[in-house]
């Protein structure tokens, strides 16, 4: 019975996580003149040297994974709500939940692997 309340609470929590980390992303990418500490090589934030420098830290890969998880949950929960509003039969409601869960887990695994791999690559350079 608690399922809907739990999903909604996580949805709101994921929204807050997105707000914080997406805010951080925007600040790094677009306030680089002010926040130069994330661009140790100087120049543009997406210059290779800066990307490698951020990838070497533990902080950035962790935030990438957290943002990925939050964005996937927030977005897929919203998509589920839209699909449920089409009033599908009960069996399809369950199937939608399972498919979205599997898609979310798959994309999360792929994205988390990419974040870890980039960290490994950056530290080896």
């Amino acid at each position: 019975m608690m399922r809907d309340a739990k999903l909604w609470t996580w949805h709101v929590a994921a929204g807050i996580v997105i707000l914080v980390f997406l805010g951080l992303h925007m600040a790094i990418m677009h306030l680089d003149e002010i926040l130069g500490i994330f661009n140790p090589a100087g120049g543009h934030p997406i210059d290779w040297e800066n990307v490698v420098a951020r990838g070497r830290t533990v902080f950035f890969p962790v935030t990438y994974i957290l943002l990925l998880g939050a964005a996937l949950f927030h977005g897929l929960y919203g998509l589920r709500n839209i699909l449920l509003e089409l009033n599908p039969p009960a069996w399809l409601k369950g199937a939608i939940g399972v498919v979205l869960l599997l898609v979310g887990l798959g994309l999360f695994a792929l994205g988390a692997w990419a974040a870890v791999a980039s960290h490994t690559l950056a530290t080896s350079l």
Partner: peptide
């Protein structure tokens, strides 16, 4: 709350 936590609750309201 027992009912409102589930699908009878306000969660579908956008």
């Amino acid at each position: 709350r027992e009912l409102l936590f589930g699908e009878k609750g306000p969660w579908r309201c956008h």
